[in-house]
């Protein structure tokens, strides 16, 4: 399996470290126990498209959000985690303004 890092290009997967589901978000401090258990311990494990965090430790040291099919290892999208977070933040801001 190879990942195409947006900064370094196509690299072997041994350059990267896996960190799991990229869609989980930290709940508010006052959210109940159930929300925190879900955040810390419970993960979906889809057979199909999975958005996940990878760290390019041997390359540019960027965190990446990779969309991969867990049945075929076909990678359909790689984006910088920073860009994903910024886009999310902007979307939230827009929603708040509206």
């Amino acid at each position: 399996m190879r990942l195409t890092c947006p900064f370094c290009g196509s690299r072997g997967v041994e350059e990267f470290t896996y960190r799991g589901d990229a869609t989980v978000r930290r709940p508010a401090a006052e959210a109940g126990d159930a929300a925190w258990v879900d955040y810390v311990y419970l993960r979906d494990n889809p057979a199909g498209l999975h958005q996940e965090l990878w760290y390019h430790g041997v390359g540019c040291r960027s965190w990446l959000v990779v969309t991969r099919d867990t049945r075929t290892h076909l990678v359909s999208d790689v984006r910088a985690a920073r860009a994903v977070a910024q886009a999310e933040h902007q979307a939230e801001h827009k929603e708040g303004a509206a």
């Binding site: 399996m1 999975h50 996940e52 049945r71």
Partner: peptide
């Protein structure tokens, strides 16, 4: 170390 249903090694 990553989620997989690929049923093959690497």
């Amino acid at each position: 170390g990553y989620n997989s249903y690929a049923q093959r090694g690497n």
